[in-house]
């Protein structure tokens, strides 16, 4: 199957290893990955911070770039939620009927990575090997936005060598919230402290999630505290097969 990757702006810039992992994983599973260079950002940060005007051209750009893609894979649940929950309304509000139609036609082809693997490709065991103690953080967008349910866990459970430990209060927000982490830095820090406590209590070496945004925030705190715990995007775990590649 040909799978078109929307890497998202922040993964592209800050977390290339996540994108590389998605490519390696999907190719290992026998699929062809395409990466249109015209892509940039879905517009989520602007939209959520109140700059909805600025988000509109970014939506148009996304639609244009991915218009002909058959299957779109996005390793970020918050960006998928942006596209799924807000694009239809934005398109409708723009008064551009053709755009609204295109958005509607595009949505069924948009998949978050774990949706792609479990729903579209029907997989749980992707042949990964990851001999570490890992805990899974359910980001708010994956949990309540996309309702991913246990899809990520189903994939993780099939990883060989993994020691998967449950995170307490898994439905609690880590305190990232995009610009919230900066605008309300102190409250965000208090929320983060609680999340870090839960992560530390698991005894895990690695905290994973389907969103690097939360992980950047959680790792930022864990590193500042010198806890020695790392965060790793789920794609990287699923891509590891012990070959060291």
């Amino acid at each position: 199957m040909q799978i078109t990757l929307f890497i998202t702006c922040y993964n592209d810039t800050l977390f290339p290893e996540t994108g590389i992992s998605v490519v390696r994983l999907l190719e290992r599973l026998g699929h062809e990955v395409v990466f249109p260079l015209a892509q940039t950002c879905c517009g989520q940060m602007h939209y959520n911070t109140g700059y909805q005007q600025e988000a509109l051209p970014l939506m148009r750009q996304f639609v244009e770039t991915f218009r002909n893609a058959e299957t779109i894979c996005i390793p970020s649940s918050s960006c998928v939620a942006m596209i799924r929950d807000h694009y239809p309304k934005m398109a409708e509000a723009s008064g551009d009927a053709a755009l609204a139609e295109e958005v509607a036609a595009l949505l069924p082809r948009v998949f978050e990575l774990t949706e792609l693997l479990t729903d579209k490709l029907g997989l749980e065991d992707v042949g990964a090997y990851y001999p570490h103690r890992v805990t899974y953080h359910a980001s708010c967008h994956s949990l309540r936005g996309l309702q991913l349910g246990d899809r990520p866990l189903r994939l993780l459970r099939k990883v060989r060598g993994i020691d998967l430990v449950e995170l307490a209060n898994i439905d609690q927000c880590c305190g990232f919230g995009g610009t919230f982490a900066v605008k309300n830095g102190e409250v965000s820090a208090a929320m983060l402290a609680e999340k870090m406590r839960c992560v530390e209590n698991t005894g895990a070496e690695i905290c994973t999630a389907v969103d690097n945004s939360c992980l950047m925030h959680i790792f930022g705190g864990l590193h500042r505290q010198r806890t020695g715990i790392r965060t790793v995007h789920l794609a990287e775990i699923l891509a590891s097969d012990g070959s060291g590649a």
Binding site: I7, N11, D12, T13, L14, F15, P16, E17, T18, G19, I20, V23, F35, L37, A181, V182, K183, G185, E186, A189, L192, M216, H217, F219, G220, G221, H223, R224
Partner: peptide
């Protein structure tokens, strides 16, 4: 406000798109 309580990893030397190209 970010770095008050969190470290930030610097941007890596190669972006994903550079790797891809």
């Amino acid at each position: 406000n970010w770095t008050a309580v969190r470290d930030l990893k610097p941007m890596p030397q190669q972006s994903f798109r550079e790797w891809w190209k």
